[in-house]
């Protein structure tokens, strides 16, 4: 049992107009095996939370803590966080010219587990995971995300999550840009990893659509850099009917 604990997290970014506070004190505790949905309107700070957890240099943590089983995550470098068991499935996966998916996956696996995977086992694992995500094996020879469609990029993120076996995954708008078939395949992948590895999931989404496939234990509504409301799955259903209007009005 692992715990990812976020306390009173304040995050700002540098803009042309000076420093801008995006997260204004966020509290969130995720345990192994739990699925938390973070919902909220655009600009509410959802993605900022994702990047702050992963350690993106653009986001300055100005207050609060993030700990993983008591260890100070904010003290860790980006790659140390991955090694500690955190994973971020990105909304906009980056193209890496000249690096094949195959090479990338093997290098990442070696880095995360501290030793090179046994070749035969690894090749089988990769093939199996790609099959499950309905990815053509020829994908392995393509450069990471280069020329990938939106759906292919997202599958590639889930593929990495499946193979790197993190203890907590943040899925940043993984549903955006997916058609219904791709959404189902990707969601199945998340559920599979969740079940197999007792993965704790922080599912960031604007829409409730993905929650039909991935059932959250908790729903948190983000408004203006804070959690405005918490609830169970039924909260997502309410949001689907009502939208975010009532939160936005309350914030004015």
């Amino acid at each position: 049992m692992s715990v990812l604990e976020i306390k009173d997290l304040k995050v700002s970014i540098d803009t042309d107009a000076g420093e801008k506070e995006i997260l204004k004190g966020v509290d969130l505790t995720i345990k192994s095996g739990e699925i938390h949905a973070i919902m909220g309107p655009n600009g509410s700070g959802k993605s900022t939370l994702a990047y702050a957890i992963a350690g993106h240099p653009r986001y300055n943590v100005t207050g609060g803590t993030i700990t993983l089983d008591g260890e100070d995550v904010l003290e860790m470098s980006v790659d140390e966080r991955a090694k500690a068991g955190l994973f971020l499935a990105m909304q906009y996966p980056v193209e890496i010219p000249g690096v094949t998916v195959s090479n990338f996956l093997r290098t990442a696996k070696t880095a995360v587990s501290g030793e090179a995977p046994k070749i035969r086992q690894w090749v089988g694992d990769v093939r199996e995971a790609m099959d499950a995500l309905r990815m053509d094996p020829a994908f392995q020879e393509r450069n990471v995300n280069e020329g990938f469609s939106g759906g292919e990029k997202k599958r590639n993120e889930i593929l990495q999550m499946e193979l790197l076996k993190p203890s907590f995954a943040v899925l940043d708008e993984t549903d955006s840009g997916l058609d219904v078939d791709a959404l189902r395949v990707v969601s199945e992948g998340v559920n599979r990893v969740h079940e197999a590895n007792d993965l704790g999931v922080l599912l960031i989404t604007h829409y409730t659509r993905i929650l039909r496939y991935i059932e959250p234990d908790f729903v948190h509504v983000f408004v203006d850099g804070r959690v405005a409301e918490r609830g169970g799955k039924d909260l997502a259903v309410r949001l689907e009917d009502e939208g975010y209007d009532r939160f936005l009005k309350a914030g004015v």
Partner: peptide, 24 residues
């Protein structure tokens, strides 16, 4: 952004750079 992406998968900075350049 490339550096962040690779590092977020556990790959240290120097290794990330090496991977990209050598691959290319």
């Amino acid at each position: 952004e490339q550096l962040f992406y690779l590092r977020s998968r556990g790959i240290p900075e120097d290794e990330a750079r090496r991977l990209v350049v050598v691959g290319f």
